[in-house]
Design a binder for these strands. Structure first.
Lengths: 369, 369
DNA sequence: GTGAGTTATGAATCTTGAA
DNA sequence: CTTCAAGATTCATAACTCA
């Protein structure tokens, strides 16, 4: 891993767990390259609203009309996107990744720009709002979702994905690309002195929770170049990730700072993701033989019992016409391109047929102690 | 409606309810401009698959590897998209609309191109697959959705949207932008002579059903430039829409033709949309007075009873400080920008409080006879 | 305190026809 | 073209009022 030292040095210069007040492009340009693990970006959507909208009860909809959401043209918006995404890519570590959230107004342009810059899209994830605002005039479908793009810095990168944690969050089923999460309302929604919402587009913490639990590790550096009300920082602190926020509006900076001060981090144990199987210590099949858990010469069988091979002292298997690893021989006998030998092969003890993976688990349990 | 005659003339030249075998760009170029009501496009996704993928049981995933899905670069894909979408826009009527379906590999580029060409996005709709293929490698979230873009030919267009039909399809609630529909499997999936699926990306009829019921009227012309297995034609025929398919592969053309021959159209009544309130004949408030359903001088009240006004012989209302239509006086008394007087005002008969809209309904019922 | 009823509100590209 | 006016249109949730 030739990158470790560089990253470690860079980390010294990082303004961790702080909000940088200023323009995100300039602020990112001042950060060292290859220093950040994950970026979460919630850029302006460029909504292009015309006129006012009233509900059927004649109350007025409080729309997004901030200056920061207005762009002169698609070209201007694209140029802005290219500029910030280029800097974002520069500060990402090689195995880093980015999340960008958007709606149909902007997300297609953002996605295409990310691809053009060399980002490699891993998933688009749909945030399905359980309580969206209806379409009051009945002219379209209720706009009930927003889209997140999850992309690696490049197609060569290997970004963090806590598969088992994601599965656990989804009650034991693989997590899908559509997430049902309510809007940010009630006590979670930051209010100004006048009691009105402080920020027009504050994101729910549940969304960031899912992003950070599934695609970062504790201690990872998470950068949010459009920090706004600071949801990314609040959730990162709670989950024991390091964070950097960039925000232009002093009012948002101040509110986010106070908000994050009030957040307490969970315990280290709670912050650690469900351990991934891949991250568990490797065990060589030969260790089972070395430790006497399997005898050289012992016969292993497939689950159905139709295929068999014999264990050799060096931890290889031998069958009628080949010799090799548990994986190779399993694949060979099935005429399959590959095979997980740990789950394919079984042995017999006291009349019961047991997968050899049970022995690997036993060794790992010992290693934990 | 100055466009009617032109469209009617053009329709004479249209190859309706037929499949054109050939390249979609050339074929669309041969169609008259402003002649089509709706386009449904399922272009190649440019999947960029590398190598083979196997399930945990070692069976091979039958991936999309057709030549028509391969492009040399994003630039080549964009040029292709621009070419077909430009022709598509030309053949659309001014109030026409387009649906395009895609996945994260291509949909961002397609959406941005549509916007660049002047299409006006109305919604992005998420097709949530109830039975997606899992992610076998456990490296990403299960890719459980595809995205459809619904766009008007321009921001000045007024595309068909059968709001009430959509609401009815969704059990009386506004239809949202996320649709749960299963993959096309089982008997619906066309099979080749070898029993294998005929087309790698055949779309479910339920998807087209929803698209056509909500955004076309019976008799509308629906064009599908990437006809494939002909789902658009099959559903259009069933729902009594006219259709045009364009497809390059002779095998698909032949299969789609046979498939559509076997489809029977539903009855005219079944094909008609839930009637919209906007489409009902206009009734002037004055007619209620003329017919003696309300007496000049009679008092009307708001539902809560707090506001009131008096009916005049000419069909206007008068309150303490203003005179005007039922809508104007309702808005005035509420200090609201507008008001639907038909539902706001109530009168009393035999002790019951009745909205004046009940009288309008009675008149409309008479007009039917 | 409790429950029923009322009001407020959320990233919104949100009308149509006649004159 | 523009202007004017008719009139069609909302779901989930939280907070508040009041009996």
């Amino acid at each position: 891993m030739p990158r470790k030292p560089a990253a470690a040095t860079a980390a010294l210069d990082l303004p961790l767990d702080r909000i940088i007040e200023g323009d995100c492009i300039a602020a990112m340009a001042a950060l060292p390259e290859a220093s950040v693990d994950l970026i979460f970006a919630d850029p302006p959507y460029n909504l292009q609203l015309k006129g006012e909208l009233h509900r059927p009860d004649n109350s007025q909809v409080d729309a997004v009309d901030a200056a920061w959401d207005r762009f002169a043209s698609f070209e201007a918006y694209d140029a802005f996107t290219r500029a910030w995404a280029t800097e974002a890519r520069r500060v990402l570590k090689p195995d880093g990744a980015i999340w960008v959230i958007g709606a149909y107004h902007n997300v297609f342009r953002v996605g295409a720009t990310l691809q053009d810059l060399g980002f490699w899209i891993l998933n688009d994830v749909v945030w399905r709002k359980s309580n969206p605002m209806p379409n009051f005039r009945g002219k379209r479908f209720t706009n009930a979702h927003e889209t997140l793009i999850w992309a690696a810095r490049s197609d060569a990168g290997r970004p963090v994905f806590n598969y088992d944690a994601a599965k656990a969050l989804n009650e034991g089923l693989q997590m899908r690309s559509d997430w049902v999460i309510p809007l940010c309302t009630g006590a979670e929604r930051l209010k100004g002195a006048d009691g009105a919402k402080l920020h027009p587009t504050q994101k729910p913490e549940a969304l960031l929770h899912r992003v950070l639990v599934t695609t970062t590790k504790p201690g990872d550096v998470v950068l949010d170049p459009f920090f706004g009300a600071g949801t990314t920082g609040a959730v990162a602190k709670r989950l024991r990730r390091r964070w950097i926020g960039i925000e232009r509006e002093p009012a948002y900076v101040e509110a986010a700072r106070r908000r994050i001060e009030g957040v307490r981090a969970v315990s280290e144990e709670a912050a650690s993701a469900t351990p991934s199987k891949r991250a568990e210590p490797r065990v060589a099949f030969g260790q089972l033989v070395e430790r006497g858990l399997l005898r050289p010469g012992e016969v292993l069988r497939s689950a159905c019992g139709r295929k068999q091979a014999r264990v050799r002292a060096d931890g290889t298997l031998v069958c009628a016409d080949a010799t090799g690893s548990i994986h190779q021989i399993g694949a060979h006998l099935q005429r399959a391109p590959s095979c997980n030998g740990w789950t394919y092969w079984h042995f017999e003890r006291d009349g019961a047929v047991v997968p050899i993976d049970a022995l690997r688990s036993a060794i790992r349990a010992e290693m934990q102690v």
